[in-house]
Every structure is written in C-alpha cells, then in structure tokens.
Design a protein around this nucleic acid. Structure first.
Lengths: 259, 259
DNA sequence: GCAAATTTGTTCGTATGTATT
DNA sequence: CAATACATACGAACAAATTTG
C-alpha cells in the first residue's frame, strides 16, 4: 500500500518549498514540465498541485502559472479593548491599531435592518424569539482593502425608549456612550466568543477570498452587558483568517508590540 | 461564460443540504447515481463533491459513500483565565471548563527539551538568539480524544537559579505558583496572540484531521510577565478549529453559559 | 472466515475552453 | 492574433476500503 503518486510529487514539491529551494513568489514548473519531470500524467501532477493548494502552500493563476504563496503581514486586533467600546465605536474602534502601521481605515455608513430575532442572536441578547431588534451592518476597509464585516444588534426597545439614532443609516461615533447619554444604559463589561468557520458566499465575495474555500473566517460574537448583568448589544464581526490575528491582554503587561 | 457543470451540480446539492432535503448524517447518492442524475461523467460529479468537501458541507468515506457532515459540539476555552494560570497549571488548567460538560480531561507527562531559542520564541521571551530554553511538550485529551498540543517555554536561567523541576519529565501542577515559591518570580499578567493556520504533519496526525487539510488549527501564544514587565514564560497551544471555541471576558459579566 | 458486491480513490489519455502574455 | 498555462470535461481501468451474503 504505497503512497499514491500525486502525494509523492506533492511531498517532493513541499520539501522544495520548505527548504527554500522554491521561495515565496517563485513560479513552479508548468504542469507540462512537471509531467515530464515526474513521469506522470498531467492530471496526476494537477492532483499534486491541488494538494499543495489545500495546504496553503501554492496558488495557481490561469494563464500564468503556479506560484509559492507569499505570507501576508497580519493585522492585529485587540479584544481586551472591545470591538465597539472604549476609544472605539462604529467609526473609530480600530483607529489606534491601524495608525501604528500608518494604514488608513475607512468604514461604510451602516445598512440598518429591523427584524425578528432568532437562534443565536436571541440567546445572546436574552430576548424571546420574535422580539424586534435593530441590526446595523457595516463594511470596514484598511487601505481600501476589505478588512471586516460587522453587524451590531440592539433591542428595538432601545429605540422606543428614545435612542432613535439607532435606526438611522448614519455612523454613530460611539454607540456605547450614546446609549449611556440617551438612556442611561451603561456597559460595564463584555464577552467575546471566537470561532472559525468556512465563509459564506457573501463573505467570500466581499473579502475576495479564493473560490476554493480554503481560507476560513473568524466569527467573533461580542456581547455587552450593563450593571444589572443584562445584555445590551451584540456585535458580530467577520475577519478572514489569512490576514488577521487577535490579542488578549490580562493583568499587567508592558506596552510593546501591541497597540 | 456559463458556470462550469461541476459547480452547477455542487450548487444544487448545496441547496438540498441547506434546505434540509439532505440532513446532517444523511448519505448522498453514490457517484454513479449522481452521474446518471446529472448526465455528467463520474469525474465531474467527483469534482462537485470535492467542492462541497472544501466548503465543509460533506465528507466521503471510502467504501461507504458521501455524507452530510454533522456539526461538532465545540469545546469552549476561556482566555481570560489563562491557559496555564489561576486554577490551572499544566495538569488542571481546563478542568473546570470540561467538568461542566462531564467530560474527562487527561494530559500526558511532558516531553522535556532543552534547546537554543530562535525567531518567535526568542522575541516573545525577550531573549537573545542562541540562549538556552526549556521546552515542555504535552498532549491533552478530552474523553480520550485528542484536544490540544501544548508546549511551554522557560528561560534555562530559571533552572540554574533553582527551579530544577522544570527539566523533569513530570507534571507540575501549577508552574506559575512553582516559579513564585521557588524563585519569587510572580506572574502579574499575560498576553495571548491568536492566529489560524493550516496544520503541519505532526498536528494533522495527532488530531486525526482529514488529510485534505481543510481543517485549520488555532495557534495561541500566551506570554506571561512578572512585576518588572519581563516575560517569564511562553505557552504555545494548538487546537483544531472545527471543534474549539474561545471566550474572552472583560469587566463585569454575568455567569451564564461560560465557565 | 471468506468471497462477492458496492463505493470511493488513483491514474491515465484525450479534447476543448478560458485567461494571460 | 498567436502562444502559453491553467480549467473543465469525458471515458476507461484498476486499486483500496467497507459492507454484505
């Protein structure tokens, strides 16, 4: 029961990549050349290349060739600061982190939706199925490249109590502060849940992810709570895993490296 | 420029899965049946199935068939508590989280290595390239299924100063406390960095991940600091992304759901 | 326990389409 | 427009894993 040939070819190419014989950005031999080199059929070398693609080691460009992937300089987001709190808010949450690298962040005005809660959102916000909520969807960019998709949900009750800006399609600089000033609802803590899953069609399109679905996305649920322990907001953020990194700071830690 | 046929087949099958026409665990028609149903060749329906595998929607079992994947009940790990601190330590860090689900955690005795630092480890521990460090590698299981690979690194200097248990291949119940009692080195905070990457061969084998490399792993770097802001340890933990979830709690948050 | 049937996995050859240079 | 390189599609044969009789 020997290893199949496409695996042997893939392992050999992988070795050449890991030993630096093929560096980032380098072009691999063409499928025809590989076919002759390994004495296999073109379909078999294609299987080998697909294996390497699945490992995230190479990428193919139609009409050009197959290339060793170049690693992306990751962007770091701190969760200890809160996606939407502190210095943050819908428009400026990440300004400090971005500034350190001289990158230019932008955010779209929110698309506002009013809907009935279900499933996860209901359970996170402690609402009954069918209650009305406000959803504010935004797209965030860094240097004009798509960075994250973010949606914040609030109970519709907040609007009825007077927080009418929640249903307007305009940025709110700091929602947490707005809720405090308008409704005296004060956020005293929050909780993040971090998962990783394959992107849906929307996300793959927005982030321009390769169609083969090998790049997964982070899904971060951040629930904010008031003094009485009641959930007051839920922010769902999506980030591609190939260009993002998260940091958590607990206790006393020196200021180095992280913003 | 129409959509290729394998995509049309994949989209149709995906629709059947998402509408519940094919539920979790259900077997898809065999490749031969799909070939007849869609009037395509077997290789083309196989391409469609591969597409769905890449999306994490189905899995194939040689000799059996193709099945809709069943979602795994995820393990939740809190980062606000520290992978190796508080109630934790090498042996018990996750006991509380696991206990809530009546799962049985186990951990192997550490494999101890002494080596010279390089790259990331040196930079995280603030050591010069070539300094000596101790690495303690452990494998952690839940209910006998592989759960995480964890390695903690400490400066060799700690051993020379008297923390000799660090180079013994036995569990240390709470390393943080041991360092404090033995060397008066007190951890006052820590920082986690969370990334996602494809598994290496070691990791894929240990976690029994599907060979096609579609399941990525979390890599969590946790650096602990003492009162003077000096790094005193680096713990690198690896978890498969398909069965793990992380939580971060900041400020006052009610005790519900999470340990 | 073994043999047959079923199902997916690997490999080849070939032809044609699409993207890029 | 032509040449090059990867993408899609078909047909065929045999191998390997699993279940069934």
């Amino acid at each position: 029961m020997p290893e199949p040939m496409y695996r042997l070819i893939a392992d050999d190419l992988q070795r050449k990549i890991e030993t630096g014989q093929l560096g980032p950005g380098d072009q691999l031999p063409t499928e025809i050349e590989l076919r002759d080199e390994y004495q296999a059929s073109r379909n078999t070398v294609r299987d080998a290349v697909k294996w390497l693609i699945g490992r995230g080691l190479v990428e193919t460009r139609p009409g050009q060739g197959t290339f060793v992937v170049e690693k992306i300089d990751p962007f770091v987001t701190s969760l200890s600061t809160g996606v939407e709190s502190g210095f943050g808010g819908e428009s400026a949450a990440y300004a400090s982190e971005v500034a350190a690298r001289r990158r230019v962040p932008t955010v779209t005005p929110p698309r506002v939706e009013i809907q009935q809660v279900d499933g996860v959102i209901a359970s996170e916000l402690g609402l009954e199925q069918g209650s009305a909520i406000v959803g504010r969807h935004q797209q965030r960019y860094i240097d004009d490249t798509p960075w994250s998709l973010q949606t914040s949900f609030y109970p519709m009750r907040f609007v009825e109590l007077g927080a009418t800006q929640l249903i307007q399609a305009q940025n709110i600089v700091d929602v947490v502060r707005y809720l405090e000033e308008r409704l005296s609802i004060k956020q005293v803590g929050w909780r993040d849940k971090i998962t990783v899953r394959p992107p849906n069609q929307n996300e793959a399109a927005f982030f321009k992810l390769p169609e083969d679905g090998r790049v997964a996305v982070f899904e971060i649920l951040e629930t904010g709570f008031d003094e009485r322990g009641q959930p007051i907001r839920l922010t769902v953020s999506i980030y591609p895993t190939d260009r993002n990194q998260f940091a958590v700071v607990v206790g006393e830690v020196p200021d180095d490296g992280l913003p």
